[in-house]
Design a protein around this nucleic acid. Structure first.
Length: 795
DNA sequence: TATCTCGCAA
DNA sequence: ACCCATGCGAGATA
C-alpha cells in the first residue's frame, strides 16, 4: 500500500521534507508567559548534521568527543549515584561519551539521547530490550526475558549482547546483569514447536530437555502418543534462500528483481552475518521430538514461555516441505521493497526458514507489502487475517496488484463473501471474527471453515496483530494450523498488559522500524502533536460539578463552549493555510452539534454507506470541502492521506491516527479529560511523538463568527446539553435515529485566556499509525455495490 | 436485498 | 489508572 499513499505519504525516493517550511509550527503560539513554562531549553539538543557527524566519528575505542551537555550528565549522574544499588558501580573514566545507565536490579536501561552514540545505542537496544518511555533527554528501556528471546531469535548471541552493552555503558557491566543475560539466552532456541502432517510436535536436539519438559504438569499431559520413546530423525538441511523483491537477502545465486535504493547499515550487515553463522552452526545431525495435542498448544506455549522460561521457537523449513503443495506466486517486478522492509524480512527469513514473530512498521510504511513478500517467499498456502471485511478486500487487491498470483488462487472469506478456493494451494483472506466465531455458523460458512481447519497452512499473516490477545481473537492460533505466523502492526501498545501474550501466541518481535529515521527519510509523515487546554466556562463548570453521572460530566466537558471555540479557531486557522482537516469525536451528540453549528459535513456509525461515500469523496476531491467531522468509524482502516490536520474533540482512548502534519487534542481543564490526558500523553510519547501543551490560542478573539461569545448563547447550549444528558444517558445513544438537532445561531464575544506552555520540547516527533490502504472509499463501494459482481469486474 | 439482533473490542 | 459508548462483523429474519 505504500504506493497508494498520496504525496505526503512518501512514495519513497525523496527523503526531502514534503511539508512546507513553517509547517513545523502548529498554530502560532502565544507568548510563553506562565509558570508552566518548561525550564529545560531545547537548544542543546544536537542538531542533526552535527549529530550525524559526531556519530560517524564516534568509535567505541576512541572516546574523543566530549559530552555536549555536561550539565545534563551531571544531573543524571546525581540521580543515579544517589541510588544505593548503583552507588557501588564505578563510572568509567570516559563515561561522559557513553550513553547508557544500567540498573541491574530491574533490568532498566536509561539512554541519553544527546550522546554522540545515541543512535547506535538505540539501534542496538531496540533489538534486546523493550522501550518504556521516550522523553527529550533520556529514553528508557527494560531488558526482560522476552526481549532477550527476541534478540536471540533474530540471531544475536549472548556474547554480542554483553559485549555491546559493555561498550555503551557508563559503568562496568554489573555481574548480576551479565548473569541474567547469560542464563536467559542460554536456554533460548533449544526447543521448537513444529507442525507436521497437521500435527504438532515439540522438537529439540537435546533429548534431555524434552524429558524434562515431559515431567512438567502442563506439558506432560498434553503429549499425545503415550509411548515413552521420543521420536528421532535427521535434521533437515538448509540452503540458500532469496527473498523476492530484495537485492539478495540470503546471499546466493540468481534473482529476479533489482532494488536500487538500499541503505543497509553496518549493524544490519553484521546482523545478517550473525544469522548465517548461527544457521550453519545449529544444523545438528538429528533431532528428537514428541507429539502434543493441538488443542493444547496455547497452554503448552504459555507454560514454556512464561513459567519455564524456555520459549518455543517456531521456524518453518518451507523449502524442504514436500508434503504441502507449492503455491505459484511471485512478486511482480514493479514491486519495490524498501530497505527497512527488507531488513524486516531478513529478520524473518534470515536463516533460510520462516520464523514466526512480529514486525512493527508504522502505518503507511508498507506492512501489506511485507506480508505479501513473505507469502511470495514461502510459496505455500497462506491465510491472512484482518480486522474488518474492508481490510480483507484491500489485502486481496494488494495481492493481485503486487504479486502475480492467479486470481483463482486467492479467496475472500467474510460474512459477505465466501469465495471458493481450489484444492491445491492458495491464499485465503478473512476476518478474525469469521474464524473465531463460536456461535452457529451459516452453512456455507461452515464449509469454508472446515476447509480452513483441515488444511495445513504454510503461513499465517495476522494484520493488526495487537488485537490478537483479545479473548476472542486469540483463538485463531489454535483453530488454524500454520507452520509459521507473521504478525504485523504499527503499535504494540494496549490498554491491558496482554500484549506480552503475543510472545507465545505468535512469536517474538522480529523487527521494529525506527520511526524517527523513517520520517527523516520521508517514508512516513511527520506530525506535530499538541494538546490544547480549554478552561470551562463558569456555567458549564457549575453544572459539571453538580453532575452525578460520568456520562453527563463528559458531555459537559466536550461541549464546553471554550473548547468549541478552540475547535472553531483551529479549523479557521488551518483552513486558511490550506489544510484539510478532520475533526474527531467519539461522542455522537457532540459530533453532530459541532458539525452542524460549524456547517461541516459529518459521518458516524449510522450514516448510510452512500452518504459516507459522498462526504469522503468530496473531502478528497472538492476544494471547497476542507473539513469533515468523524466519529470513531474507521477506527480500523480509514486512511485519508489528504488530511493534514486532525483535531480531536473527545476521545478517551489514546488514539493513534496517523497524520501528515498536525494533531490537536482539545481538553477541558479541571475535568476528567485532564485525568485521561496523562494517559494520552504517555501514549503519544511512547509512540515517539512529542507534543506541546497549548493554553492560549493567539488570535482566537479575532475569529470571525466565533460562536458562543455571549452568555446567552452559552446558556442556550448548556440547556440543550443538559437535556441531552437526561434522556438515555448521554444523548445520542438509545435508538439510532433519534438524534438531537443542533441548536441554531452563532454569536460573538470575548476570547479566552490561556497561556502557551511547551510540555515536552523534545525532538521532532513522528507520527505513525497504521491504516491499510487509501482506497477506503472505493472499497466500501465495491463491497456494497456488488459483493460478487463488482469484485469480479474489478479484478 | 434490507434490516434487525447479538456479541465483542478497547 | 476510568467506564461507557460506539461501531462493526456475523447471522437471522422477511
Amino acid at each position: 500500500m505504500p504506493p497508494k499513499r498520496k504525496a505526503a505519504a512518501a512514495t519513497g525516493s525523496r527523503p526531502s521534507k514534503r511539508v512546507a517550511s513553517g509547517v513545523n509550527t502548529p498554530v502560532s503560539m502565544g507568548s510563553s508567559d506562565d509558570e508552566y513554562m518548561s525550564d529545560d531549553p531545547d537548544d542543546y539538543t544536537p542538531q542533526n548534521d552535527d549529530y550525524e557527524e559526531t556519530v560517524k566519528k564516534f568509535q567505541p575505542s576512541s572516546y574523543r568527543s566530549k559530552n555536549p551537555r555536561p550539565q545534563e550528565s551531571d544531573q543524571a549522574t546525581r540521580l543515579f549515584r544517589s541510588d544505593k544499588e548503583l552507588s557501588s558501580l564505578e563510572l568509567k573514566p570516559d563515561h561522559a561519551v557513553r550513553p547508557l545507565w544500567l540498573d541491574p536490579e530491574k533490568g532498566r536501561i536509561v539512554v541519553e539521547t544527546f550522546s554522540p552514540s545515541f543512535k547506535q545505542a538505540q539501534n542496538f537496544l531496540i533489538n534486546i530490550a523493550e522501550p518504556q518511555s521516550r522523553t527529550t533527554n533520556v529514553h528508557e528501556y527494560t531488558i526482560t526475558g522476552h526481549s532477550l528471546f527476541a534478540a536471540v531469535s533474530v540471531g544475536l548471541t549472548t556474547d554480542d549482547i554483553i559485549r555491546q552493552l559493555e561498550v555503551f555503558s557508563k559503568t562496568k557491566l554489573p555481574d548480576s546483569l551479565k548473569e541474567f543475560i547469560f542464563t536467559s539466552t542460554q536456554s533460548y532456541g533449544k526447543i521448537r514447536l513444529v507442525l507436521k502432517h497437521n500435527r504438532y510436535y515439540i522438537e529439540s536436539q537435546d533429548a534431555s530437555v524434552l524429558q524434562m519438559l515431559l515431567r512438567d504438569p502442563v506439558v506432560g499431559p498434553a503429549r499425545i502418543h503415550e509411548t515413552d520413546e521420543l521420536i528421532q530423525e535427521k535434521a533437515p538441511q538448509l540452503g540458500g534462500l532469496v527473498i523476492p523483491g530484495t537485492k539478495d537477502a540470503a546471499g546466493d545465486d540468481d534473482d529476479d528483481d533489482e532494488d536500487e535504493d538500499d541503505k543497509k547499515d553496518e549493524a544490519e550487515q553484521d546482523m545478517t552475518a550473525y544469522l548465517r553463522d548461527e544457521d550453519d552452526d545449529d544444523e545438528g545431525d538429528e533431532v528428537h521430538s514428541f507429539e502434543i495435542d493441538g488443542e493444547k498448544i496455547q497452554a503448552v506455549q504459555q507454560q514454556c514461555n512464561v513459567t519455564l522460561g524456555l520459549p518455543l521457537t517456531n521456524e518453518y523449513d518451507f523449502r524442504n516441505d514436500d508434503i504441502n503443495a507449492n503455491l505459484d506466486i511471485d512478486l511482480r517486478p514493479m514491486a519495490q521493497i524498501r530497505y527497512y522492509q527488507e531488513h524486516a524480512l531478513s529478520k524473518m527469513f534470515g536463516n533460510g526458514r520462516a520464523r514466526s514473530g512480529i514486525i512493527v512498521l508504522p502505518c503507511g510504511a508498507g506492512k501489506t507489502l511485507v506480508g505479501i513478500t513473505a507469502a511470495c517467499t514461502v510459496k505455500k498456502s497462506a491465510i491472512v487475517l484482518c480486522t474488518s471485511a474492508m481490510s480483507a478486500y484491500q489485502w486481496k487487491n494488494e495481492f493481485l496488484k503486487w504479486s502475480n498470483i492467479n486470481p483463482d488462487d486467492i479467496a475472500i472469506f467474510t460474512s459477505g463473501e465466501k469465495e471458493k478456493l481450489n484444492q491445491r494451494a492458495g491464499i485465503i483472506v478473512c476476518t478474525y471474527s469469521m474464524v473465531t466465531q463460536n456461535t452457529r455458523r451459516a452453512h456455507d460458512s461452515q464449509q469454508v471453515m472446515d476447509f480452513i481447519q483441515n488444511r495445513e497452512w504454510g503461513l499465517m499473516v495476522l494484520d493488526e496483530v495487537h488485537v490478537v490477545p483479545a479473548e476472542m481473537f486469540r483463538r485463531v492460533t489454535s483453530k488454524i494450523r500454520s507452520h509459521s505466523k507473521l504478525g504485523l502492526t504499527a503499535t504494540l501498545l494496549r490498554e491491558d498488559d496482554k500484549i506480552k501474550d503475543l510472545n507465545f501466541l505468535i512469536g517474538p518481535k522480529l523487527y521494529e522500524a525506527n520511526w524517527l529515521q523513517l520520517s527523516e527519510e520521508g517514508h512516513i509523515a511527520r506530525v506535530q502533536c499538541a494538546e490544547v487546554w480549554c478552561p470551562m466556562t463558569t456555567e458549564f463548570y457549575g453544572e459539571y460539578l453538580k453532575a452525578r453521572t460520568t456520562n453527563k460530566r463528559s458531555l459537559l466537558s466536550t461541549m464546553n463552549p471554550r473548547k468549541f471555540q478552540a475547535c472553531q479557531f483551529l479549523i479557521d486557522y488551518h483552513e486558511k493555510r490550506g489544510d484539510k482537516i478532520i475533526v474527531f469525536s467519539d461522542n455522537v451528540y457532540a459530533l453532530e452539534k459541532y458539525a452542524k453549528r460549524l456547517k461541516k459535513p459529518y459521518i458516524y456509525g449510522d450514516t448510510p454507506q452512500r452518504e459516507r461515500e459522498m462526504v469522503l469523496q468530496n473531502f478528497q476531491q472538492n476544494e471547497s470541502v476542507r473539513t469533515i467531522f468523524l466519529s470513531k468509524i474507521g477506527d480500523t482502516s480509514l486512511d485519508l492521506p489528504e488530511a493534514t490536520c486532525l483535531i480531536q474533540v473527545s476521545s478517551h482512548y489514546g488514539n493513534d491516527e496517523g497524520f501528515n502534519a498536525f494533531f490537536y487534542s482539545l481538553v477541558s481543564k479541571d475535568t476528567n479529560e485532564m485525568y485521561y490526558s496523562s494517559k494520552r500523553q504517555a501514549f503519544l510519547v511512547d509512540q515517539g511523538y512529542s507534543f506541546k501543551v497549548i493554553t492560549h490560542l493567539t488570535g482566537i478573539d479575532k475569529v470571525e463568527g466565533l460562536h458562543f461569545r455571549d452568555t446567552s448563547s452559552r446558556m442556550e447550549l448548556l440547556e440543550d446539553v443538559l437535556m441531552a444528558g437526561e434522556e438515555s444517558g448521554s444523548g445520542p445513544k438509545g435508538k439510532p435515529g433519534v438524534r438531537r438537532t443542533a441548536g441554531a445561531l452563532s454569536e460573538y464575544a470575548g476570547g479566552k485566556d490561556m497561556a502557551y506552555i511547551e510540555y515536552n520540547k523534545s525532538r521532532n516527533k513522528e507520527l505513525k499509525k497504521n491504516k491499510p490502504t487509501s482506497k477506503f472509499f472505493k472499497d466500501i463501494q465495491r463491497t456494497n455495490e456488488k459483493r460478487k459482481a463488482a469484485a469480479k469486474a474489478d479484478m
